[in-house]
Design a protein around this nucleic acid. Structure first.
Lengths: 199, 199
DNA sequence: ACCTGAACACCGTTCAAGT
DNA sequence: ACCTGAACACCGTTCAAGT
């Protein structure tokens, strides 16, 4: 297996993907044509099609590589047994997203695309599964404390999965809401949810 | 002004919009072509273009007419002074959405489209404004009770707007999450949010 | 193997002609 | 005024030919 060639291919795919991402941020998913990516990347149509079999596969590559933020720090804290209440996990995850992630409007566009493209949907749930696992690890100490020492491992696992999905859902709500209605302070959002639903 | 003709036009636009909606639910926004709508509606290309100036205007019409559910009952309860905690407003709103609204995946697709189409975005925020106002009316009695009798009208209005946006955000989170990861019981979702964030 | 770019099929939109 | 459907411009994809 020629290692140089593999590295070259990967670099090439990344170059194309990054050029595409610049177009997407500027013009949106619908209005970005292959011609735009050709111009932005400085390559030819055929060059792009020799690295991606079509536009959908390029979108899948971008989703797998850039759509979802890594929350390694939160996961590490969870592994060490640090109790992180869900509201802190949510706040810090949204902070990371706002700083390092793709713009909310672009994320929402990819969600929309995935609704009609089963392969893109599969790629999205695959990467989301990784995030969900991290989220689960991050909240496990909190779940254990909530359920008490008597709780079985399955009960902890079940409650952890439920909590992770809920945090993901709240993050999605923040993303969709800010994408459509404009920016909102992360802390203010989380506090407002607590004030409205907690008691 | 010929009243008959106006009624005819409206009926015609509706016929086209409903045919389009059937296509959208079947094939998704991206894969529904004008040719599909022509076939589904039994009209010709030109007939459609004599009622909508283009595909984007047809999308705007559908969004304004079908995207957002009416929560008249909740609004009426709020007007009568019935105290509805946000969690009840959210639960009942999501119940209405699940029963009468468009499928979640289609809603998410329209969100995505609106991200790159300023006119569709404007139509969406316009209809969302109506929902936001209803949401505000529904929670006003609860906000008054929370803030106490000493609260000024501006304080009530401010907290009402904040709470309405938060409820909308939680609903969007439910929609995006179920669209991508599959169905989830509304009550279980709301309880899980309370358990995770309340205290 | 990677790349070029002209050619092809398809989709949104227009428009001359019909009622 | 509403409608018809062929024609046009544009976009994703292919493919014969080049390195």
């Amino acid at each position: 297996m020629p290692k140089v060639t593999d590295a070259y291919r990967d670099a090439r795919r990344d170059k194309i993907a990054r050029a595409a991402l610049r177009c997407l941020e500027r013009k949106g998913v619908h209005d970005t044509s292959i011609a735009d990516i050709v111009e932005e990347s400085g390559l030819s149509t055929g060059a792009i099609y020799s690295h991606f079999s079509n536009k959908a596969e390029l979108a899948r590559y971008i989703v797998g590589r850039f759509l979802i933020v890594r929350i390694d720090a939160l996961e590490a804290a969870g592994r060490e047994g640090t109790v992180l209440p869900p509201r802190d996990v949510l706040t810090r995850m949204l902070g990371i997203l706002t700083e390092d992630g793709l713009p909310a409007p672009l994320i929402v566009q990819f969600w929309g695309e995935a609704m009609a493209d089963p392969d893109l949907h599969a790629e999205m749930t695959r990467t989301a599964g990784r995030l969900g696992a991290s989220l689960g690890i991050a909240v496990t100490p909190w779940v254990r404390r909530e359920l008490g020492d008597a709780a079985s491992d399955t009960a902890v696992a079940e409650r952890t999965a439920q909590t992770a999905r809920t945090i993901a859902s709240l993050a999605q709500g923040y993303i969709a809401n800010t994408a459509i209605f404009g920016p909102r302070d992360v802390g203010e959002y989380v506090e407002s949810v607590v004030a409205a639903l907690g008691d």
